[in-house]
């Protein structure tokens, strides 16, 4: 048994990383906004937003994938909108895989960021206001820096979740080698074919290594950032 990866396997790993990184980075600003709205917002429909954000966590992934297909497919209303305005196509492309991963990872990311925001002492923001800082300036100089450990933890968690996403991805963008085939869908394909257990095992080991690395990095980042933020 060899652990050396062939070009096709490298392609799978690269695509998975690309999908997960984009899913994390593109959803981060929305994750921060959603966390702020849920933690601090006093508006009608806050509960609706809360449910919408958390729905992917409890829905069967195949349902989420199907809804994405209906909304963001080439005939879907949002799919057509993005196609005509931004030239961005999701259906059966890696971008679609990234979208599916982002949606599935979103609740985890928002939860972590929201917890971090709720841990920021509003008394510090009051003090900043008495020193003449505008609300935006307070957010940029006090709230956001103090939330940073939580934002990082949420991002790493989201990234790890995105790497492992299977159900919504395969439903929405299928399992096209070189286009939308990520590590989990590739493992699934290999296990369908007799005699491919070794290739599957290699991807499984890579998957375990990436996930473990993400968790270690998240722990390390959280501890160091927390230390820097508290200044002790």
């Amino acid at each position: 048994m060899t652990l050396g990866l062939g070009p096709a396997e490298w392609q799978v790993v690269n695509l998975s990383l690309k999908v997960a990184i984009w899913a994390t980075l593109a959803s981060l600003p929305f994750g921060i906004l959603a966390a702020i709205a849920l933690a601090r917002g006093r508006f009608w429909g806050r509960e609706v937003l809360n449910i919408a954000v958390h729905l992917p966590l409890v829905l069967p992934p195949v349902v989420t994938g199907y809804l994405l297909l209906v909304l963001f497919g080439s005939q879907g209303p949002l799919g057509r909108f993005f196609e005509t305005t931004l030239g961005l196509t999701f259906a059966f492309r890696w971008t679609g895989a990234a979208l599916a991963c982002a949606i599935m990872a979103f609740p985890l990311m928002v939860r972590a960021i929201r917890l971090a925001l709720e841990a920021v002492d509003p008394k510090l923001e009051e003090a900043a206001a008495t020193l003449g800082a505008s609300r935006l300036h307070i957010f940029a100089t006090v709230t956001l820096p103090l939330m940073l450990p939580g934002i990082l933890a949420g991002s790493v968690l989201g990234f790890a979740k995105a790497l492992g996403e299977f159900g919504a991805t395969i439903t929405f963008v299928s399992n096209i080698p070189g286009q939308t085939q990520t590590i989990p869908t590739a493992i699934y394909s290999l296990l369908q074919v007799p005699g491919q257990e070794n290739a599957a095992l290699r991807l499984i080991l890579i998957s375990i290594a990436l996930s473990a690395a993400a968790l270690v990095a998240s722990e390390w980042l959280a501890r160091n950032m927390a230390k820097r933020v508290r200044g002790s």
Partner: peptide
Amino acid sequence: TADRRIGYVFQEPRLFPH
């Protein structure tokens, strides 16, 4: 508050920890 130009020393220092 930010435009009142009124300084405030609270019961606890409320310094920015970062």
